[in-house]
Nucleic acid binder design. Structure first.
Lengths: 197, 197
DNA sequence: TTGATTGTCTAGCGGTGCTAGAATTTCTTG
DNA sequence: CAAGAAATTCTAGCACCGCTAGACAATCAA
């Protein structure tokens, strides 16, 4: 039944085309400009075809978000592995996180900002859990006497907060580097000092 | 011409009514449910009246955001002033911030999350600058050798990140308190220790 | 070749933010 | 007080949105 598998391949290709096109459109003109009509125009199919692949527009955005999670996790892994001590790994990974937010703002929004129904807990999609595992690899070594998972959550949140406010124009762009440096400085502060209570 | 001022007062009252109604509706059913039709129904006027007060829906959300900034700043001020040392002030203020995000999620979204055109820099509306001044009062004492303004930005970002991810269901709710404690712990880590470089 | 199945499209529903122009109210003035 | 002017409010509708039912075309099985 090679014909069946060919159709499946073509269908999978179209599935990916929808995701990629939506993402390009969003990065170029913002999510507000990603309408089902414009999207179906770009992929040269009619609107209902979108709904044969995805439950709705939100599901398309979720697919972009998951793709973004994979990329972000990969970028952080590269950053971490190219460093040879804990502090450099933290600095590089945090830099990669913020860089991703700046380079792909729309994807970043789909992942974290816009109202999405992606489950984030223990039954999150695998790419999300992988991304958290990557964060864990960066932050857990710094946990000292604190619970490493909860500490990872806090460390992630801190980096995320800087990325979010930075990107939204809430913070002056000229100090981006200095903020990253202060953040790393602060996250390292309790490392190996026996600081307690 | 008391009649002129009376009309002005009535108009101002209606202006505030629009803001309050929009906010209530958003907190009750989410911003997605705040439509110009529903909103104009609630205030018992027709849609175009909204546009005689605000440039558009986004401007109404911005007004809610500014109101939220005032409240958040006030809550943080109360928290800070009820503490009698730097760490308690930080802890109380951060708690107030997160609490606000939890208590008024829609308002919080209008302030920080949803795409808004509020200028945040030096020419931001006064309430926003006041709110930042309040943050400065909390964080600047912890800056040590770092620039107090940039350090405030980082501290704010960290608290903000925890609040955002917590509220969005991105982090398990049962550790909220512990995350706050770790965050405060970490932000205090360099205080009075002569930690350098 | 024919009939069923699958895939795709056209057309349209109910909703959105927003606005032009009609209708009404309110004020000013003779 | 009445009538014209000015300000205010409403009705009606535009262009767009996400989404879908049902018509149509392509593909497969017999």
């Amino acid at each position: 039944m090679t014909t069946t598998t060919r159709k499946e391949r073509e269908r999978a290709a179209r599935h990916q085309l929808i995701i990629s096109t939506a993402r390009e459109l969003a990065e170029a003109e913002g999510w507000g400009a990603v309408t089902t009509r414009k999207l179906s125009d770009r992929i040269e199919y009619s609107q209902p075809v979108l709904y044969s692949h995805f439950k709705g527009k939100r599901a398309i955005m979720d697919a972009v978000a998951i793709e973004g999670c994979e990329e972000l996790a990969a970028a952080m892994r590269r950053a971490r592995q190219s460093a040879d001590n804990t502090e450099d790994a933290l600095s590089a990974a945090a830099g990669a996180y913020m860089d991703f937010g700046r380079r792909c703002p729309a994807t970043f929004d789909a992942m974290f900002t816009l109202p999405g129904d992606l489950p984030f807990g223990p039954d999150a999609p695998q790419p999300l859990r992988d991304a958290f595992a990557e964060l864990y690899a960066v932050f857990a070594p710094l946990a000292a006497h604190r619970d490493p998972t909860v500490f990872t959550e806090v460390g992630w949140s801190a980096v995320h907060g800087v990325a979010v406010l930075d990107r939204g124009g809430r913070l002056p762009a000229e100090y981006t580097e200095e903020r990253l440096s202060i953040l790393v400085d602060q996250l390292m502060a309790a490392f190996g000092t026996g600081h307690d209570s």
